[in-house]
Design a binder for these strands. Structure first.
Lengths: 326, 326
DNA sequence: CTGAAAGCGCTAACAA
DNA sequence: TTGTTAGCGCTTTCAG
């Protein structure tokens, strides 16, 4: 392996000169050329361990993600990765497998690895985790949730709830069922639902509520139970996955969407395009979120000032699964 | 930050003694206890950069994956991650975004990072790449493809093709269309198809062939064209995604699966469970592949001997989309 | 069983 | 502009 020292010897200079060439660049033209030639010839690449040992941190970017098989997370990841690749950052991905304990573990791990920055794609949060994140000495960016005092990028979930509710009301629906998830998830479980419920209430109606999990399978099985008896003409599911589960149950029960009831999701995963009927949803800019995230964490690593909170707008995407009530 | 030196000083011993305590362990009981207490008290954690600088390599495991949004890759990843987490290995994931150039880049990158082992989830391959992999000084394991002389784990794709063909024939179908992909992908484009075609031919029939891409959207659009005129009573798609695309087109055209034609995929992604009708497929053990991969790379890193090639069996999973011909 | 000392490859303060 | 030097935190010989 070629080292700084090798280059220095062959160029007949001190290693600090080579180091300077590599970093600041304050070197005479003559030595510059000499060094350059030798580096090219040998294909020298600096040893990252030595650099990091010296610097006391690496410039990798750590990412904590909730799971590998979430289409939305994968879109975010793709955005992060595209920019990271372009800017030459190395990513260190850690999976917390939907466990809050592993989220904490992963953060500690990235801290120990002394990554330059952390992007936390949040799922569940508790006080412990918030405290841990707040005390981190590494620049940290939260995606999808908020923590007091920590920079974050979030979707406009409350507004998304409103958009879907307005859509349902415009189509003339008044018997409405909202199928949501646990309040432990603030963005999906609380904001979307509140945006939806508030809007329905303001219009003078009341939506029923059913709580399910994020699992498509569970949504499917529960829907088999409640679909036969529900009076709702519009069912708003809190995610596209849940909506797909409900659609599968409707098919199973020989109910037609949107003839028997209208159905919508949230998310804009490409999945909701490929069901039949395709499902009305709110498109979230996941890919853009990833792009923004990496740019922002880079700023933070350079200690540029950044705003604490940025919200990304989303929009209604009307497809085949919703229609005017007769 | 606490260092080895700090511990040594506080314990009144030399740092080499602490190091020995941490590694081999040949230390007197008395010093052992002293050191232990201080380490616990301070929460000391060894500096990985220093360790790696010394060792000239880290014990992270690098993974090269084709893209983030593939359900099968995600399953493999989950298997890899579960074992890695259990065994305390750190993963370094790199995305090659379906580009063979980025595959090469990523491998070089992992080489420069001096990871302890590389798991290459292959997609496309060319001679250059094969050469690069063969010359690697880091233990490397290929998933899903073969390279001469490099350990690999592959699916039984040819056999999978046979299984599906046998199923179609058993149901009495003789007018068969196989919708496949490019031969650049050996496992999916060549082996699956050959297994299928050979079996059909041995039975005395001939299947038609249509080439498409891996994209569900493209499969959908092309199917809109050929479904109205095809004579096939059985369509075998080379992946579940393609099958879903075809199913969507059938829905669009008011064709019924399996009444108008039977349809099958390959892959066993959970997606094929949640369409209506659910799609007959070959279940591949992706998660197990990930588990095996990590165990194997660990062996390789310990320089245990490993077999060069292991093939993982898969099995037919009959669901609602295929039925006996009338 | 333990300590002293060298060195992994790099950076940066200081001196020339 | 350049070289000398010290040191990041750890492991590992080699003596004792």
């Amino acid at each position: 392996m070629t080292t700084l020292n090798d280059i220095a010897k062959r160029a007949g200079v001190a290693k600090s000169t080579v180091s300077r060439y590599l970093n600041n660049g304050s070197v005479s033209d003559k030595t510059r050329e000499k060094i350059q030639a030798i580096i090219e010839e040998t294909g020298y690449v600096p040893n990252q361990f030595a650099q990091s040992l010296k610097a006391q941190h690496s410039n990798m970017i750590g990412v904590v993600l909730p799971r590998f098989d979430s289409p939305s997370t994968n879109q975010v990841l793709k955005g992060i990765d595209d920019v990271a690749h372009e800017k030459g950052f190395q990513l260190m991905l850690t999976n917390s497998n939907l466990s809050i304990e592993r989220e904490k573990e992963n953060i500690s791990l990235l801290e120990r690895q002394k990554v330059g920055g952390i992007i936390l794609i949040a799922s569940k949060m508790d006080e412990d985790l918030k405290k841990q994140v707040t005390q981190l000495s590494i620049p940290t960016l939260i995606l999808g949730q908020k923590i007091e005092g920590v920079p974050s990028l979030v979707h406009q979930d409350y507004e998304a709830g409103r958009l879907i509710a307005e859509h349902a009301l415009e189509l003339g629906h008044t018997k409405i069922l909202y199928v949501g998830v646990t309040e432990e998830d603030n963005a999906v479980g609380v904001l979307r639902r509140n945006g939806f419920m508030d809007t329905v209430k303001e219009a003078g109606f009341e939506a029923a509520f059913h709580e399910t999990s994020f699992s498509r399978k569970e949504a499917y099985q529960q829907a088999l139970d409640y679909l036969p008896t529900t009076e709702a003409t519009y069912i708003a599911a809190a995610t596209d996955h849940i909506a797909i589960g409900i659609l599968n149950a409707a098919n199973e029960l020989n109910l037609s969407v949107p003839d028997d009831f209208s159905l919508s999701g949230f998310g804009g995963y490409s999945e909701s395009d490929y069901t039949f009927p395709s499902i009305t949803t709110i498109d979230y800019p996941f890919y853009d979120l990833g792009i923004k995230a990496l740019n922002r964490i880079e700023q933070m690593m350079k200690e540029d000032p950044v705003s604490l909170l940025e919200t990304l707008p989303n929009q209604l995407n009307v497809k085949q699964s919703t229609k005017k009530i007769k």
